[in-house]
Amino acid sequence: MLRFAAVRLLQAIVVLLIMSFLIYGLIGLMPGDPIDLMINADPNVTAADAARLRALYGLDQPIWERYLNWLTAALQGDFGYSRLFSRPVPEVLAPRLLNTLLLLGMSLVLSLMVAIPLGVFAARRPNTATDTAINLACFAGISVPPFWLALLFIILFAVVLGVLPAGGMAPVGGDGGLWERLPYLVMPVATLTLVSIGGYTRFVRAAVMEQLRQDYIRTARAKGVPERSVVWRHALRNAMIPVVTIVALGFGSLFSGALVTESMFAYLGMGKLIYDSILGNDYNIALVGLLLATLMTLAGNLLADLGYAALDPRITFTETRT
């Protein structure tokens, strides 16, 4: 188990290194470079000056050499400065990351709190009218464009009813405490939750139905275990194994959802920061932000594998890949 964890950790680091080079290269392919941005601001710069500046900043070197320079600095904790914020990258990223984790955490807990009971409820009465209705609602949740749902919320609650703020983080002049931020969190959390409930519910339903067909359920029923207990304690516990996996594997898509939601509601999280930094040529932020997002998804995958083993003692990690 420990050995398995170590091997996976090593793999994750290799993937992260490869990704950092790929992203570094891709960002180099975006329009313009830092010198172009300096030149735009100053009409007196000549072509010779630009070339001299490029040499000064090392931009005339081949890509892999520049990447190695970046990597050496990054490994020593120097991630450079943000162009848009004029502050060191970690200082800009840290509060944004906390905001995103708050948003994702709240919506994940909420959607599981709805999806698990709903999925079990549907699995117990397959192919009835109730089940069909739940299934329809799930399809609607999966198919709705998140940014459109956000727009509808803004139109309804901010424009027509005027009960919630259309976007932002906290009232101006407040102390920024969680209580003051709550009204600003309602719509982003609701959007993210509604678009993820459907998928989770369908998954819980399928997993519970799969378990209810097993022999041990028939045994439990035959020996007189109350139905409540059969479903919630026997079937659901086993059904949770694939559900945990899908939740952990879903970190990547959850993050994509956060990017859209945060941009719609001007919520100052990581997703919006990455989007703004890509559009605003803030290379250092974009690079580290994207890597952080990748790191979070990789960590989710690793957790899924380890959680799998912890939840199901039948699984051992001798030679895993099938």
Binding site: V15, M19, I23, G252, S253, F255, S256, L259, V260, G271, I274, Y275, I278, G289, L290, A293, T294, M296, T297, L298, N301
Partner: peptide
């Protein structure tokens, strides 16, 4: 495993 949307951007 990649965060697809930011990379697509």
């Amino acid at each position: 495993a990649l965060p697809l949307l930011p990379l697509l951007i």
